[in-house]
Design a protein around this nucleic acid. Structure first.
Length: 598
RNA sequence: CGGGGUGUAGCUCAGUCAGGCUAGAGCGCACGGUUCGGGACCGUGAGGUCGGCGGUUCGAAUCCGCCCACCCCGACCA
């Protein structure tokens, strides 16, 4: 490709909205362009890399016996009603209807559809295991797109679904994908760590996320430096020990605490550690209403109206936790069996009868009370008095208050100790590159995807689902492979292997030599980018660094006068001279090799 | 959806607080010339519904109201 003809130019200045390195470089290199929030156009250079990522993923999926197929993006809404996910994913579904009023969603993920197709085609255990996948666009009306390609509303995903006869089979399929993922991320030169994760709205059992650890990540993960335990903060287990379990319960005492509305202020003013206090947090919990979750949506189908709040029930929840800890909303949701929990606004809290700033479970009526499981073990905590500007000293569980639910609802933090080996853990941020799920039989049961086993019994398929976000991986590749000057493409992903820089191409001897090298390399099957533009050397070298091809060769009047071409790898600091006559063969040879990554 | 911020030329931004005549700069772009090994220089030129609608005013990029878009922090996910 001649750079003078390439659709999409490099940018000297980056649009102000770009903050992460990958976003800046993608824009600067002219690889992508934003169309709307979370929606991008891929220019030829970006698309070329995209297709290479796709190829690596395809190769590794096929290697494990995956069968590629293609599902539509336009999916009848009924498909998601079967599993109830038209409700649980309500907020992220892009919906549309056809001219006759039939409703569809743009597929955000395809568990239901794959299960549906499985149901129509599979009858016997002899057809199992089955690994089917697609590499296709997904649509999610994310409330907050972010970080360039890191969080999008339209994105490509490789999604594979495994169907097994039993859980042992699922374990094998899961392992296959787990291993394939390691190879994919390795080939893309993105260091990832598998971490235990939350199954969230997907439902299911085991799940790992493959995290690329970076300060630009949006997920918090805990890592044990000693035993290697790694988990998303949402599910991370840690050592929880009471601080005051051995104390004798002292008599409660009401004190004036004007202006002390936060745990920090309270603890400071009383001269006690935050762990001596009991914190109150107010949540609104949403529950799926069983009578409405299925077959709902066959009614209420007037065009354009969303069935807001249908099939759900809300409840105010009072959460008590030791003052030095924070609530893990994921754990809270599970403890309550709720579909969703959201932090209450001040007004809602007031309406629910909570005295913000001095709230307490002591003497509280009319709300469900959830206590972290550490609280019943502690003694003599400071808690609110449920009266403005008053707190209680020496509050004790059982004697002064009890909870409706006692559960571990604490969020893991930096320095909390590993449950396996008691070593303090590190908190790091990461970007999720992919996820593997053991779904179990949930979707198969909802949809009726059963097969006949060896005994002739009908059994639901045991499923897994395995996703990789392609754009996110592309962003990760750049995050993990760049320097101040630009991108450093891993060998397998470089859109071109060789970047020819012609200095003063308006001089015939330069143009002739460069044209010839360009053609020779192409005829040798080397992907080559040829900077034939009439630009100054500085501009060309900077663009070559920015675009990041593995090999750069410079043809200039200076080099040509000695019959040489200059060669420099993107990862090398110094260039070297080689005879021009051998340049094509030498470059082709070097481009064919897979140099070790730095 | 809550909190914060930004919308002026393709990009980066000034001008807005204290309203005033043909709305500016740098980069980029076009043409001509001089240059040529790490984002050169000179000259000429094209390019703008000042996010949109409404209002106040003799007069609005500037003041007021409503709306929209985008970015960042949270709640959600590949």
């Amino acid at each position: 490709m001649r750079l003078s003809q390439l659709f999409g130019k490099t940018l000297r200045q980056v649009p102000a909205e770009a903050e992460t390195p990958s976003h800046r470089l993608l824009l600067r290199a002219g690889m992508v362009q934003q169309v709307a929030a979370g929606v991008y156009a891929y220019m030829p250079l970006g698309w070329a890399v995209f297709r290479k990522i796709e190829r690596i993923i395809r190769e590794e999926m096929d290697r494990e016996g995956g069968q590629e197929m293609m599902m539509p993006s336009i999916v009848p809404i009924e498909v998601y009603q079967q599993s109830g996910r038209d409700q649980t994913m309500k907020d992220i579904l892009f919906r549309l209807s056809d001219g006759r009023g039939r409703e569809f969603a743009l597929g955000p993920t395809h568990e239901e559809l794959f299960t549906e197709v499985f149901k129509r085609n599979v009858r016997s255990y002899r057809d199992l295991p089955l690994l089917a996948y697609q590499i296709a666009p997904k649509f999610r009306d994310e409330p907050r797109p972010r970080g360039g390609l890191i969080r999008l509303r339209q994105f490509w995903m490789k999604d594979l679904y495994s169907f097994d006869a039993d859980w042992e089979g699922l374990d094998i399929s899961y392992r296959k994908m787990y291993d394939a993922y390691q190879r994919i991320f390795d080939r893309c030169a993105v260091p990832t760590v598998p971490v235990l994760a939350d199954s969230g709205a997907m439902g299911g059992k085991d799940t790992h996320q493959f995290m690329y650890v970076t300060e630009y990540g949006e997920d918090n993960c805990l890592f044990c430096p000693n035993c290697g335990y790694a988990a998303d903060a949402e599910v991370a287990a840690f050592v929880k020990e009471p601080a005051y379990s051995s104390e004798e319960a002292k008599p409660a005492e009401e004190i004036d605490t004007p202006g002390l509305y936060t745990i920090q202020a309270l603890a400071q003013n009383l001269g006690v550690p935050e762990s001596r206090t009991c914190k109150a947090v107010f949540y609104q919990a949403t529950y799926a209403d069983g009578t409405e979750s299925k077959n709902q949506g066959t009614r209420n189908k007037e065009r354009g109206t969303r069935s807001e709040g249908q099939g759900t029930r809300a409840e105010a929840v009072f959460v008590a936790i030791r003052g030095d800890m924070d609530v893990n909303e994921s754990k809270l949701r599970k403890a309550l069996g709720a579909v969703d929990v959201t932090y209450m606004s001040e007004e809602d809290a007031q309406q629910a009868g909570f005295v913000a700033g001095s709230a307490s479970a002591v003497g509280l009526a009319g709300a469900r009370i959830v206590a972290d499981d550490l609280l019943p073990l502690e003694h003599n905590l400071v808690a609110g008095a449920n009266k403005p500007d008053k707190h209680l000293l020496n509050v004790n569980y059982q004697r002064d208050w009890t909870a409706d639910v006692v559960a571990d609802i604490a969020l893991a933090k930096e320095g909390y100790r590993c449950l396996n080996c008691r070593t303090p853990m590190d908190l790091k941020r990461g970007i999720e590159m992919g996820q593997v799920f053991k779904l179990g039989t949930r979707y198969a049961e909802d949809i009726g995807a059963v097969f006949q086993d060896q005994e002739g019994k009908q059994r639901p398929a045991v499923m897994g689902s395995y996703g990789i976000g392609l754009e996110r991986l592309l962003a990760g590749v750049i995050e993990a492979n760049h320097d101040e000057s630009g991108i450093i493409w891993p060998h397998e992903l470089a859109p071109y292997k060789v970047h020819i820089v012609a200095i003063q191409p308006e001089k015939p001897e330069v143009a002739q030599a460069a044209d010839r090298l360009y053609e020779e390399l192409q005829s040798l099957g080397v992907e080559v980018l040829y900077d034939d533009r009439e630009e100054t050397p500085g501009v060309k070298f900077n663009d070559a660094d920015l675009l990041g091809m593995p090999l750069r060769t410079t043809l200039s009047p200076r080099n040509l006068s000695s019959g040489s071409a200059e060669v420099k790898a993107r990862t090398e600091a110094q260039s070297r001279l080689i005879p021009l006559a051998e340049a094509a063969a030498a470059l082709a040879n070097e481009a064919q090799q897979s140099p070790e990554r730095v």
